[in-house]
Design a protein around this nucleic acid. Structure first.
Length: 603
RNA sequence: GCCACCAUAGCUCAAUUGGCAGAGCACCUGUUUUGUAAACAGGUUGUUCUGGGUUCGAGUCCCAGUGGUGGCUCCA
């Protein structure tokens, strides 16, 4: 069955029509309100209003009740064609509508004066009950087609939104609503929202003692607690090992650099909005680094390079600092200081294709190992009308072609998005969908001909000529912070054993079993496992409850029988009870599970 | 940064029209030694986010600041 196009679905019409009904109810509550626009969106709809006063919960409840009343009556949605003059007459008190009318009747032009939309030869107005709206439609035939029990506007709080999405213009009040075909669908939607909250990495981060964000340290500056740091360290060591296998060389560079470094790289003027104020050091200006690449370039230039030295792949988990507006900060996914799993590859032009493909393969390997198999690639190219980019057109063209060739060679699915390039070159971003189908931009690969030029990078080729290498920037995770935030939500805090901060807890039934519990702990630690014996003076059942809450993959209960038989009684965090397993057998099976990076916890 | 909302013990939350700041969990002490999701008893825990104001009296009302949340704008 072909997938239905949302814009043509009945659900789309229901939501669009519900938005009109909400606007009608809002105008009854706030006769002074000016209406802006109200389209259907994913999972619902919204309408923007310019309100005389702030809206409160009582208003929302009143409007929701009124909406349901209107919906329960029979009102047809009738369409009428009008001229621009008629439309202006009808909406004379609605300045936002007048602006829309002007836009619709005039040919719209882009910055270069090229037409992007023909003038509308007719305008349409939809009316239901006592409310008319300038609207292209389509709508349901009658309010009877909308189930009042499947509509709600109290699920999401009102929010501010700029008129036409422009932060320099009037800020309006956006009321979100949701509407479904059946009350059952609405209930399912509510459940999905609750599930998302349960998986929220900020909630789980606290529950599982992974990280905190402390107001005295500063917003957007997470502090990693031991368990969170263990998870992070596990990921870092895993990726570091993979990279070393693939010929990457570790480097370590400082978090500050002389401003000349960033002027040379070109970051300084281009990154002005996201940089912190320079720090005065003995009269020189230093910058908290927003990027790692300039440091790596200077490592490259520290020695003369031969064509035999290339490719050089410098890798560093490099912490960078970027100013983000306070309202943009969110948990681990948007912070002010974060660590990029960065590497810069300095390659000869004849090595570019192979090296680029090697990077793409590495990223695919990383995502697959973590069970994030639903991802796509986006090729960000230059917006031809913008001047925020550096470098010659020919270099850009060359880099873009190199990426396209590499993708096609690998049979990699990608789509092109103009305007999404870095300022110094085109990039290939990896966009992952998590279990809740939300999309996140994670890994990135960029081809760069500009920094080599700016830092005057050279190598001596076979013919004894000095030539310029090409740079590849890449980060499979993107940032450790964001990646782990997404990982927490992806696994709902129940990490596969190889990533779990604590892989097994040993629970003695009585105090007399403590020595055996300690022995089991020591043996498993020797096998490289992250385990601990819980020797607290409290009963076994309460310990099980506590560690279950922390999503420990394996709980090992040990009592008289286990001591006598040298077994451990294994309880999985899924509540499956495997019964007594020989201690060595468990150790072997657990080690194999961890070694294979299994997504499951079965043994 | 902007709009709106929120802030009480480590956590989740109570506190009637403005009238003695509380409960559960956690933590501490003692008793208890338990075979698969909470043993029992006692105890500690507060600048009610900060600073002003109104009032006989403020957790509660008003103002400002700080922090958080939802969204917009922006982004790894």
């Amino acid at each position: 069955m072909p997938e239905e196009i949302y814009e043509e679905s009945q659900l789309y019409k229901i939501r669009h029509s519900a938005a009109h009904v909400m606007a009608e109810a809002m105008l009854e509550r706030f006769p002074e309100a000016k209406v802006a626009i109200g389209p259907p969106i994913e999972d619902g709809f919204y309408y923007d209003f310019d309100l005389p006063t702030a809206i409160n919960d009582d208003d929302i409840r009143w409007v929701e009740k009124r909406m349901k009343k209107i919906l329960s009556q029979k009102h047809d949605f009738s369409m009428r064609e009008v001229t621009a003059a008629e439309a202006r007459e009808i909406f004379q008190d609605q300045p936002y509508k007048l602006e829309l009318i002007d836009e619709l009747v005039n040919e719209r032009l882009d910055e270069d004066g090229a037409p992007i939309a023909a003038p509308a030869d007719r305008l349409t107005i939809y009316r239901q009950n006592n409310f008319s709206d300038l609207c292209r439609g389509p709508h349901v035939a009658s309010t009877r087609d909308i189930n009042p029990k499947a509509v709600s506007i109290s699920l999401r709080p009102p929010a501010g939104a700029y008129w036409r999405g422009d932060e320099k213009r009037q800020q309006l009040t956006r009321i979100y609503g949701t509407a479904w075909e059946t009350a059952e669908d609405l209930r399912a939607y509510r459940q999905r929202l609750e599930e998302a909250i349960k998986r929220d990495h900020r909630v789980l981060g606290e529950k599982l003692d992974l990280f905190i964000i402390d107001s005295m340290v500063g917003k957007g500056l997470p502090l990693w607690l031991p368990d969170g740091a263990t998870l992070r360290d596990t990921l870092e060591r895993w990726l570091r090992d993979i990279q070393i296998e693939r010929g990457y060389l570790p480097v370590v560079t400082p978090h500050l650099g002389n401003i000349e470094l960033y002027k040379t790289s070109g970051h300084y003027p281009y990154y002005a909005d996201s940089q912190y104020t320079p720090i005065d050091v003995d009269g020189d200006e230093f910058l908290l680094r927003p990027m790692n690449c300039p440091h790596h370039c200077r490592i490259y230039t520290s020695q003369p390079r031969s064509y035999r030295d290339l490719p050089l792949r410098y890798a560093e988990f490099g912490t960078v600092y970027r100013y983000e507006q306070s309202g943009e900060l969110r948990g681990l996914t948007r912070v002010r200081g974060f660590t990029v799993d960065d590497a810069h590859l300095f390659v000869r032009p004849d090595q570019l294709l192979e090296e680029f493909q090697g990077v793409v393969k590495l990223i695919q390997h990383v995502f697959n190992a973590l069970g994030m198999t639903d991802f796509r690639a986006r090729l960000g190219t230059r917006d031809p009308d913008s001047d925020k980019y550096v470098g010659d057109n020919s270099l850009w063209e060359e880099a873009t072609v190199a990426i396209i060739n590499a993708c096609e060679d690998l049979g990699m699915d990608y789509h092109i998005e103009p305007g999404e390039a870095a300022f110094y070159g085109p990039k290939l971003d990896f966009i992952v969908r998590d279990v809740l189908k939300r999309e996140w931009q994670l890994g990135t690969v960029q081809v760069d001909y500009n920094l080599p030029q700016r830092f005057d990078l050279e190598y001596v080729d076979r013919d004894n000529e000095r030539k310029r290498p090409v740079m590849i920037h890449r980060a499979p995770f993107g940032s450790l912070e964001r990646f782990i935030g997404i990982l927490i939500e992806h696994f709902a805090g129940a990490f596969p054993p190889w990533l779990a901060p604590t892989q097994a807890v040993i629970i003695p039934i009585r105090e007399s079993h403590n020595p055996y519990a300690r022995e089991v702990e020591a043996l498993l630690k020797e096998r490289g496992m992250r385990v601990k014996a819980d020797l607290q003076d409290r009963n076994m059942r309460s310990k099980i409850k506590q560690h279950r809450r922390m999503n420990i993959p394996w709980l090992l209960i040990v009592g008289d029988r286990d001591m006598a038989d040298r077994t451990v009684s294994v309880r999985l965090r899924t509540d499956e009870n495997l019964g007594a397993l020989p201690l060595d057998g468990f150790a072997d099976a657990a080690a194999a599970n961890i070694e294979s990076q299994s997504q499951g916890i079965g043994l």
